[in-house]
Amino acid sequence: MGIMYRSRKKFGPLILNFTQRGFSSWSIKIGRWSWNSKARAHRVDLPGPLSWKQDKS
């Protein structure tokens, strides 16, 4: 198993995700709600280590 390179750049609520191959996906995070372009899923952070996720289906 090799070493993976991952990087995130934040511009306010917009987050750009990069891997060793280049641009990977973008996300929007407003408060506890977020949406990811690659997974096309909504996520809401819940208290503690829990979160709720709704897939694109």
Rank of each mutant, 00 (worst) to 15 (best):
S24P: 12
Q54V: 12
V44M: 13
F18I: 14
S34F: 04
P13Q: 15
Y5M: 10
P49D: 05
S57C: 11
P49S: 07
L46T: 04
K9D: 09
S34D: 08
I15L: 00
L46A: 11
S37E: 09
V44C: 01
S24T: 09
W33R: 04
A41T: 14
L50C: 01
S57P: 08
F23S: 06
R40I: 02
A39H: 12
G48N: 03
I15M: 08
N17E: 02
S34I: 03
P47C: 06
S7A: 13
R21D: 10
L46C: 10
L16D: 02
A39G: 12
D55H: 08
K9C: 06
T19E: 11
N17Y: 05
W26V: 05
K56I: 13
S34M: 01
R21S: 05
L46V: 11
K56D: 15
R6W: 14
A41C: 14
R43M: 13
A39N: 14
F23W: 02
N17L: 03
P13M: 11
I15S: 06
R21E: 06
L46N: 11
I3D: 15
A39K: 14
R43Q: 14
S24D: 14
P47D: 10
D45C: 00
K29C: 00
I28R: 01
R8W: 06
M1Y: 12
W52L: 13
W33F: 08
W26D: 06
R32V: 03
I30Y: 01
M4R: 10
Q54M: 13
S37Q: 08
V44A: 06
R8N: 04
K10Q: 15
D45H: 03
K56W: 14
R6S: 10
N17M: 00
M1T: 12
H42P: 01
R21Q: 05
K38Y: 02
P49E: 00
I15R: 04
G2D: 10
P13N: 07
V44F: 13
S25V: 02
S25H: 09
W26R: 09
K53N: 15
K29P: 03
T19L: 05
W26Q: 08
S37C: 00
L16Q: 02
G2Y: 08
S57L: 12
Y5T: 09
D55C: 09
D55A: 12
G31S: 04
I30T: 03
S24E: 14
K10E: 14
I15K: 02
F11K: 04
I3P: 14
S27L: 03
M4N: 13
S24C: 10
R21L: 10
R32L: 08
S37W: 01
G12Y: 07
L46E: 12
N36P: 03
I30P: 03
F11E: 01
T19W: 08
S57N: 15
K29S: 00
W26N: 04
A41R: 06
M4P: 05
R8L: 04
A41N: 11
S34V: 06
R8H: 00
T19N: 11
H42S: 07
I3A: 15
L46H: 08
S27G: 03
G22K: 02
F23T: 11
Y5C: 02
W35L: 05
Q54E: 13
W26G: 06
P49N: 02
M4A: 14
Q54P: 03
S37M: 00
D45F: 05
R43L: 10
